[in-house]
Write a protein that binds this DNA or RNA. Structure first.
Length: 310
DNA sequence: AAATCGGGCAACCGCGCGCAG
DNA sequence: CCTGCGCGCGGTTGCCCGATT
C-alpha cells in the first residue's frame, strides 16, 4: 500500500501565496511557533493549504531574519567553495550562510553561479577545468577556443578578446584552493603506512571504477567501500584531514566490492559513506574548520582575488 | 505595440529518514 | 519488526516579468 497523501489534494490551494495567507501563517507561527505543520493550516485560520506548503512558505519566505537582498560577493564565494567540498547539499551550504535558505542557495547556484563557472571553463559539477576533464575522458579532441574566450564572461567575450587585466581562472586563489582540495580527495598513497595517528581518509578514488580511476590519472580502484566505511565508523574522532578537509579511509586491506563496472553503485556508496561520516561528527563544525583554513577559503573576501569580477 | 524569448524565483513533488505506537 | 506519520531535503516545474525582435 502506498503512502497516503499528507492532505486532501482536492481542497488544497496551490500556487503563489496571497498577503492574507501570509498574514495568517505569520500570526500563527509568531504566537504558537512551528511544529506539527499538518495541523497548521486549520489552526492558522483555515488556510486552504497543505501543511507542507505552509512549512515551505514559512522557512523560505516568512521566517524571521531571512535576507531578501541580493547575494554578496562573500556569500557567492562561500557558496562556490562549499559546493566544491559538499556538492549539492544545499541545506548544509545554507547553514553556513545566515539568513539564506537552501532554496535561495540552490536557485542562485542554478541560475548564476554554475553559469559563471562554465564561462570560466570550469565544470560546475566537479569544479575541475572542463579541458582537463575532456582530456581525462579522452573522448574528444580539445581545440582551444579563440582568444581563450571560455575563461571570461560572455559579456566580455562578445566581439572582443578578453581584457588582459583579468587573471585566468587557474591563477586565482579559488582555483588553487580547489586544486589542493582535489589532490587530497584523489591523491593515492598506496605505500603510506597505516598509522593510528593518521587521519582517516575517505578517497573518492576508493569508490571509482577502474576506468574512472584511470581517467583520474592512474588512481587505484581497488579500495573497498567497506574498508572506508569501517574506518569512518571506527575512527570518528579523527575530525579533520589534510588542511582541515576531512577525509576518511585508506588503502590498507582494500578489495573491490561490487566489481569495477559498478560505477553507479560506487558513486552511491561514496555518498553513503559521506552521510555515515556526517552522522559520526558535527558537519557544521567540520565546515567551520575548513572555512577557517586559508587554504580553502583563503580568508579573502576580495572579488578580485577570486577573479570573480565580471 | 505586439509577440516571443529567456532568466529568475517561488512553489511543488517525490523520496528518504527518524520516531512513535 | 512493522507501519504510519511528520519532517527535511534535493530536483523539478511553471509562472512572472523584463529584454529582445
Amino acid at each position: 500500500m502506498g503512502r497516503p497523501p499528507c492532505c486532501d489534494k482536492a481542497n488544497v490551494k496551490k500556487g503563489p501565496w496571497t498577503p492574507e495567507e501570509d498574514a495568517k501563517l505569520l500570526a500563527y507561527t509568531s504566537t504558537h511557533g512551528t511544529g506539527n505543520w499538518t495541523s497548521v493550516p486549520q489552526r492558522a485560520g483555515r488556510l486552504k493549504r497543505c501543511g507542507k506548503s505552509c512549512r515551505l512558505r514559512y522557512t523560505n519566505y516568512l521566517r524571521p531574519n531571512l535576507k531578501h537582498e541580493n547575494f554578496t560577493q562573500e556569500e557567492e564565494e562561500l557558496i562556490v567553495t562549499l559546493h566544491a567540498m559538499l556538492g549539492s547539499r544545499w541545506s548544509l551550504i545554507a547553514n553556513q550562510l545566515p539568513g539564506r535558505t537552501d532554496n535561495d542557495v540552490k536557485n542562485y547556484w542554478n541560475t548564476k553561479l554554475s553559469k559563471k563557472l562554465r564561462q570560466r571553463g570550469i565544470d560546475p559539477m566537479t569544479h575541475r577545468p572542463i579541458a582537463d576533464l575532456m582530456q581525462s575522458i579522452g573522448t574528444l579532441a580539445i581545440r582551444p577556443p579563440p582568444a581563450a574566450a571560455s575563461y571570461f564572461p560572455a559579456s566580455q567575450v562578445a566581439g572582443a578578446a578578453p581584457p588582459p587585466s583579468l587573471p585566468a581562472f587557474h591563477d586565482t586563489p579559488y582555483f588553487s584552493a580547489l586544486k589542493q582540495q582535489q589532490q587530497v580527495i584523489t591523491h593515492v598513497d598506496a605505500d603510506a603506512p597505516a598509522s593510528p595517528d593518521q587521519h582517516h581518509q575517505l578517497k573518492w578514488s576508493d569508490f571509482l571504477t577502474d576506468v574512472d580511476a584511470a581517467a583520474l590519472g592512474g588512481g587505484h580502484a581497488d579500495a573497498s567501500q567497506a574498508a572506508a566505511l569501517g574506518q569512518c565508523q571506527e575512527g570518528s574522532a579523527a575530525a579533520t584531514g589534510v588542511g582541515g578537509v576531512r577525509a576518511f579511509g585508506d588503502d590498507e586491506g582494500a578489495s573491490s566490492i561490487g566489481g569495477a563496472d559498478d560505477g553507479a553503485g560506487a558513486a552511491s556508496a561514496f555518498i553513503d559513506a559521506i552521510l555515515d561520516c556526517d552522522k559520526e561528527m558535527g558537519v557544521d563544525q567540520l565546515i567551520a574548520e575548513m572555512l577557517a583554513d586559508p587554504a580553502y577559503y583563503g580568508g579573502s573576501s576580495s572579488s578580485s582575488d577570486m577573479g570573480w569580477d565580471c
